[in-house]
Design a protein around this nucleic acid. Structure first.
Lengths: 139, 139
DNA sequence: AGAAATTTGTCCGTATGTATC
DNA sequence: AGATACATACGGACAAATTTC
């Protein structure tokens, strides 16, 4: 599969999923992500594609990689505590006025919205909406 | 040649040489760098290695790449040297429909919105909006 | 302490998709 | 329409650092 052909590039899709795990705390800060080999199996992707995805998270400061050890989830401010549940979802939506202005894209252009809903004992305590461009033109 | 074996990785060496050409003006601002294919021949490196080098210059804001056209020496710019700037702001706003529904507060009730705007080289790459109730001793 | 296994880093070659000229 | 150029993705190989036994 040389190129997506439909949908977004695989390394972006993989990056989104891994990002969600880290941001949500599903992968605890300081703990190791699955090895590149394990991710290759899980996502059925080549190592290059996996590394491409990880490079994005690295650039975002979300993870840090150590040769011989693995990739570590960066210390994260928010995250867990006891009895905290997290729902996350990701959609592709048209940019709102505010988002388009800040991201510098035309209004209505498709962007990725990732939403994290944090609950404590069933009660929503925090909502986090993040927006990113789709294209990202490499890196 | 699987690995440098001596000295620095080839993609770093290549990046340095290209960087020098751009900074020195040898490659005029706005003009095209040699194509990836040409660079492969010149540096006797694989395309992946060439692209790795170009990605570095791109991150530094020194060049910009356009699919189908080529890689262009940046006009000028260079706002700062580094990677990522973050703007943090916090406001008290009335809850939108969505926020009120999720947080379980009456629509219009005041909530705290914290906004994080992430920029790289002056360009906004991500917006994060988080919403919390005001009167919660729970963080 | 030393050897083996694991894991990331670098590099190559190839193939195909997609945008631009 | 054809050629050129960048983007994505695969596969293999070896090097270097760390962990494990």
């Amino acid at each position: 599969m040389p190129t997506p052909q439909y949908g977004r590039p695989r390394y972006l899709v993989i990056a989104s999923k891994l990002r969600a795990r880290v941001i949500s705390g599903l992968i605890a800060p300081g703990s190791l992500l699955p090895s590149e080999g394990a991710l290759m199996v899980e996502f059925k992707a080549s190592r290059g594609t996996i590394r491409h995805a990880l490079a994005l998270l690295r650039d975002e400061g979300l993870v840090r990689t150590e040769r011989g050890r693995g990739t570590v989830a960066a210390a994260q401010a928010r995250t867990d505590g006891a009895g905290q549940e997290v729902d996350l979802s990701s959609h592709i939506i048209p940019a709102s006025t505010e988002v388009s202005r800040l991201l510098g894209v035309p209004r209505g252009e498709l962007v990725e919205e990732e939403q994290i809903v944090v609950r404590r004992s069933g009660k929503v305590t925090e909502i986090i909406n993040s927006y990113r461009r789709l294209n990202t033109n490499l890196k």
